[in-house]
């Protein structure tokens, strides 16, 4: 399955990346190569194969409902690019994301 420049542009928004025209060009070519290569998988008949999302066959791992100490607010916000000692600050989120 080849991928078009337009599709790559659309995906760049979905992935929240900003690509210059030149980067878009290279990305389209490289993704095209890789997608062309992975096309190899389509020759396998996998209709009856159970997908394997985990490397382990483990289930039902729980923790008890116990409250543990949270981070100090200062510690939580210490890595924030912008904060006001109470909240993280980001450009306005009015409307949609």
């Amino acid at each position: 399955m080849a991928i078009s420049r337009e599709e790559v542009k659309k995906v760049s928004l979905l992935a929240r990346l900003q690509l210059s025209d030149a980067e878009l060009e290279t990305m389209t070519a490289q993704l095209g190569d890789i997608l062309g290569y992975v096309e190899l998988l389509s020759e396998l008949d996998t209709d009856k194969v159970e997908p394997m999302a985990h490397a382990l066959d483990v289930s039902n791992v729980f923790r008890d409902d116990k409250v543990r100490a949270s981070l100090d607010r200062g510690e939580a916000l210490a890595n924030a690019p912008k904060h006001d000692d109470e909240c993280y600050r980001v450009p306005a989120v009015l409307g949609d994301g």
Partner: peptide, 28 residues
Amino acid sequence: NALVRMYRRTRSEGFGPEVRRRVMLGTY
């Protein structure tokens, strides 16, 4: 919008080419 552009610029500046490529591939 401002928020989306903040995300996009941040991520494009913060990630190198290989990371961007894999993020694009996986998103697609």
